[in-house]
Amino acid sequence: MQTEQAEQGLRERKKAATRRALGEAALGLAMEHGVADVTVEAIAAAVDVSSRTFHNYFSSKEEAIVSVAADRIEDSVEALRSRPPEESNWDALETVMVEDLVGASGQGDPLAQFLFIHENAALLSQEMTAVKCAIDRFSQVVAERSGTDTARDMYPHLQAGAAMLCTRAALTAWFADPAADVVDLTRQAFAQLRAGLPEPQRDTGEP
Rank of each mutant, 00 (worst) to 15 (best):
A42M: 12
A130F: 03
L115C: 04
D91C: 09
H55R: 09
F114I: 00
A195M: 04
V183L: 02
T39P: 05
T186V: 06
E4F: 10
P156M: 15
A25G: 08
P156V: 13
R83D: 08
K61I: 03
A143W: 13
D153W: 04
G9S: 06
E32C: 04
R152I: 11
E78Y: 06
R81W: 06
T129F: 06
P198C: 08
E206A: 07
A64R: 12
L165M: 13
H118D: 02
V182R: 10
R137L: 08
A143V: 05
R202Y: 11
G205Q: 08
G23L: 06
D136S: 05
T39E: 00
T18V: 15
S88D: 10
A176N: 07
A42F: 06
A151E: 15
F114G: 00
L10Y: 04
V131W: 10
A163P: 06
L22M: 11
L158S: 09
A151G: 12
V96N: 07
L27M: 15
Q5A: 14
L171E: 09
G108W: 08
Q192L: 02
S105K: 02
G34F: 04
S146I: 01
V77L: 08
V38I: 03
L123A: 05
Q2S: 04
V183I: 03
S82R: 03
R19M: 09
R187A: 02
R137C: 05
C133A: 01
M154P: 03
V183G: 02
A130E: 01
L158A: 14
P156E: 15
R145V: 07
L93W: 12
E86P: 00
S50G: 10
Q188W: 02
A189P: 09
L197V: 14
I135L: 12
